[in-house]
Amino acid sequence: MSDTAPARHRHDFLAAAHDDNARRTRWVVALTAAMMVGEIAAGYWTGSMALLADGFHMATHAGALGLAALAYRYARKHRNDPRFSFGTGKIGDLAGFASALILGVFAIGIAVESTLRLIDPVRVDFASATLVAVLGLAVNIVSALLLMGGHHDHHLHDHGHDHAHGHDNNLRSAYFHVLADALTSLLAIVALLAGRYLGLGWMDPAMGIVGAIVIARWAWSLMRDTAAILLDTHDAPAAAAIRARVEAAGAEITDLHVWRVGPGARAAIVEVAGSACSAALREQLEGAPAIAHLTIGVR
């Protein structure tokens, strides 16, 4: 015998702040795109390759942020589409995984280019490049504040696996892209000032390598966490809480599956042996960690 959710049960597992996060992400996309256009235009106008390079690198981030904004829109539009068995709550994780790949490629590109410049230094227009880096950093700070304000948990900056299960990974990926831009701008400012006033031209590519390593770590962290969710990895802490409640009711679990279906929302399939009443078990599991969709089977 099995007890499943009624046919009218909705599979809307989007985050409570979904619309607010989407709006904030759109603002960041607009700011990044405007900065990108400005840098590319200034690069052509002044003939500065540094400005052009930074503008085109920002274009990759604008694309990734645009992907995050589209993911929010798609998830809301199709949240009740029956083709998605458990709703569209993981669309953001899919977009986050794609963004992590982009971040990883970006990090590799920076590392390669920086290494080549260490071997064969190029002339840098320190004054123009510093000005643009400062402007870019200002835009990134504003963007980061917008995204941080859209997250209800002050642990957004925590890259740990356990914390990631309660986060909107689409917003997290956008935040990482903004942080990557801010980091490269900050390191560039330090390196450019050292090159201009101390004659340490090698600092520019050296800082590029440092930035690439940090960005690669962010990319790996985001890729690891989103991949685990996309592959329906077993949520051990939530499963332990469910097991404790079921055993407290005197039932024996023969099969248990718990996985995430949206930001902070989990689905669970609980199969028990014996004469336990499924209604009683469901009542016992009320309040279990963010179980948004529960299926109980009694053998």
Rank of each mutant, 00 (worst) to 15 (best):
M1N: 11
S2Y: 04
A5N: 08
P6L: 05
A15S: 14
A16Y: 09
A16Q: 15
A16S: 14
D19Q: 11
N21K: 14
N21C: 14
N21Q: 15
A22S: 13
R23S: 12
T25I: 05
R26H: 11
T32K: 01
A33I: 03
A33E: 04
A33L: 15
A42N: 02
A42W: 10
G47N: 09
G47Y: 03
G47I: 00
M49N: 12
M49D: 06
A50S: 11
L51S: 02
L52F: 03
D54R: 01
D54A: 12
G55H: 03
A62F: 06
A64R: 00
L67H: 03
L67I: 03
A68R: 00
A69P: 02
L70Q: 11
R73G: 10
A75G: 07
R83L: 13
T88R: 12
G89N: 13
I91S: 07
I91C: 09
F97E: 00
F97L: 15
F97W: 14
F106T: 12
A107G: 05
G109N: 13
E113N: 14
S114P: 04
L116R: 13
I119Y: 12
P121K: 07
D125M: 02
D125G: 06
F126G: 10
A127G: 06
L131D: 00
A133K: 01
A133R: 02
L135S: 08
L137I: 09
L137R: 10
A138N: 03
A138G: 07
V139N: 00
I141F: 02
I141Q: 01
L147M: 05
M148R: 10
G150M: 04
G150S: 11
G150C: 04
H152F: 14
H155M: 12
L156K: 07
H157W: 11
D158E: 14
D162W: 07
A164G: 07
L171R: 06
L171Q: 07
S173F: 06
A174S: 14
Y175T: 02
H177N: 09
V178I: 15
S185Q: 12
L186I: 15
L187W: 05
L187Q: 07
V190W: 06
A191H: 10
A191W: 01
L192G: 13
G195Q: 14
R196G: 10
Y197W: 15
L200V: 13
G201P: 09
M203R: 14
A206H: 03
G208M: 10
V214D: 09
I215M: 04
R217M: 15
S221T: 05
S221K: 06
L222F: 08
M223T: 03
A227R: 13
A228I: 05
I229P: 04
L230H: 10
A236K: 07
P237D: 06
P237T: 10
A238V: 09
A239V: 06
I242N: 01
R243W: 05
A244H: 05
R245L: 08
V246Q: 03
V246H: 02
E247V: 03
I253H: 01
L256F: 01
H257T: 11
W259G: 08
W259I: 03
R260P: 04
V261Q: 12
P263T: 00
P263W: 13
A265C: 14
R266H: 11
A267R: 11
A267E: 08
A268R: 02
E271T: 13
S275L: 05
S275N: 10
A279V: 14
L281K: 02
R282L: 06
Q284V: 06
Q284I: 00
L285P: 02
E286S: 12
G287Q: 08
A292N: 07
H293Q: 09
